[in-house]
């Protein structure tokens, strides 16, 4: 389910079925490598929407966790922990972070939840057909990570 009013209505009603929260981690900064930052963010947002489409009944896609490129990792981890507490405190069992920012990989052991890191693929020059193919193969792999988590502790 997406972070939109009509989906949230369903979420509120069917809360017991929705136990997984997906948070895209998207960096922001206007100084160097502007285009790289943007396209990595765009890629993750496409992937997370596609993931939501496949598994919409059991996961809630939150608005992205955004941060300045220059924000120290300590700060980010601390802020993200607050998000974690908020959603876990409200009945979610699994939290999945999606990012293509490699810095998170170094902080993975400090996060309490699953971090899925995907190398970003520049989609803007691909034709539509190929773009969809690429996204769907990538999403398939993320799907497996998520469904595996579910199988290990069925609800």
């Amino acid at each position: 389910m997406k972070w939109i009013a009509s989906d949230i209505e369903t979420y509120a009603k069917e809360k017991e079925y929705v136990d997984t929260i997906v948070v895209p981690l998207i960096p922001f900064g206007l100084e160097n490598n502007l285009k790289g930052t943007v396209s990595a963010g765009e890629y993750i947002s496409i992937i997370s929407h596609e993931l939501e489409r496949q598994l919409r009944g059991r996961l809630l896609l939150l608005p992205p966790f955004t941060y300045l490129n220059s924000e120290p990792m300590e700060e980010k981890v601390k802020r993200l922990a607050e998000w974690h507490n908020e959603v876990i405190g409200n009945g979610a069992s699994y939290v999945v972070y999606l990012t293509s920012d490699v810095e998170w990989k170094n902080a993975e052991d400090r996060l309490e939840d699953t971090l899925v890191w995907l190398p970003s693929i520049p989609l803007e020059h691909m034709d539509n057909e190929y773009k969809m193919e690429t996204v769907s193969t990538q999403v398939k792999q993320v799907l497996q990570i998520v469904t595996k988590k579910w199988q290990n502790s069925p609800k």
Binding site: T10, Y17, Q54, L55, R56, G57, R58, T147, K155
Partner: peptide, 22 residues
């Protein structure tokens, strides 16, 4: 709740459509 179902993806239930969510 609108997930995408898969054909015989669950080994326990071949020849059925299976929804991975619930």
């Amino acid at each position: 709740l609108g997930c995408t179902v898969d054909w015989s993806s669950n080994a326990a239930y071949p020849d059925q459509f299976y929804c991975p969510c619930h």
